[in-house]
């Protein structure tokens, strides 16, 4: 009778602690692994600065170039839909902000629920489009391995369960909420060991690319 509640309590308690611990330790290990490999300083005479172009690339790579957009609109649009929808529903949903508040000690204003709800639908649509693209686009199909599909699933589940829980489409509610939390815990646990790490490392990657180009006086 009380299984759903026990499950929710477990998901909110022990499981969350375990998942968060693995996530934090894992991410730090990954960043150490990368940064420990270093980058030798070039002895060539620089033609430009590294810092600013590096920073610029971190931001500018968020926008696609015109040619790529024309050639692969679906990849670009699905990517945008998903990422924007995800960021809104992850960071601007009030219950989530409360969670961050409890974890890091500070919060920020959220958005009204109907907007977050719409963002979630957009994110889910984006992810479904991305999956379809991955299964049909010959390049993506060839590039994708099991991990790519695993990462897709790990990202999709929290969005789906969150949506279902918010709309009470799973009964009882503690089960819905528990499943949602559990799906996030799965994501957290596997995050450091999969491509989900790109969430953090893309900033490094973009910076390196921009800095190395900036050094040679090229805009990247």
């Amino acid at each position: 009778m009380n299984d759903a509640m026990d499950f929710l309590l477990w998901a909110r308690g022990t499981a969350f602690d375990v998942a968060l611990t693995i996530f934090i330790i894992g991410v730090i290990i990954r960043l150490f692994e990368i940064l420990s490999l270093g980058r030798p300083r070039s002895l060539a005479e620089p033609k430009g600065n590294q810092l600013l172009p590096g920073m610029k690339s971190v931001i500018s790579r968020t926008l696609p170039d015109n040619g790529t957009f024309k050639r692969q609109p679906l990849t670009v649009i699905a990517g945008y839909l998903f990422h924007i929808g995800l960021l809104i529903s992850l960071l601007l949903f009030i219950p989530h902000i409360e969670l961050f508040n409890a974890t890091v000690g500070f919060g920020w204003p959220g958005l009204p629920n109907p907007i977050v709800d719409a963002a979630t639908v957009i994110a889910i649509t984006g992810l479904l489009a991305a999956l379809w693209n991955r299964l049909t686009n010959p390049v993506m199909k060839l590039l994708s391995d099991k991990e790519d599909y695993l990462v897709w699933l790990l990202t999709f589940l929290p969005l789906l369960t969150g949506y279902l829980a918010y709309h009470r489409m799973i009964e009882p509610y503690p089960l819905a909420l528990g499943l949602h939390i559990l799906s996030i815990e799965l994501l957290l646990i596997l995050f450091p060991f999969t491509k989900l790490m790109h969430t953090f490392t893309l900033f490094l990657a973009r910076w390196y690319n921009g800095a190395m180009s900036g050094f040679r006086g090229v805009q990247s």
């Binding site: 308690g13 969350f16 602690d17 611990t21 409360e98």
Partner: peptide, 18 residues
């Protein structure tokens, strides 16, 4: 939505361990 454990404390231990 707030987990029941002592998240901040656990997180700082995890950072140290990490």
């Amino acid at each position: 939505s707030v987990p029941t454990g002592e998240i901040s404390r656990n997180a700082s231990y995890a950072i140290a361990a990490g």
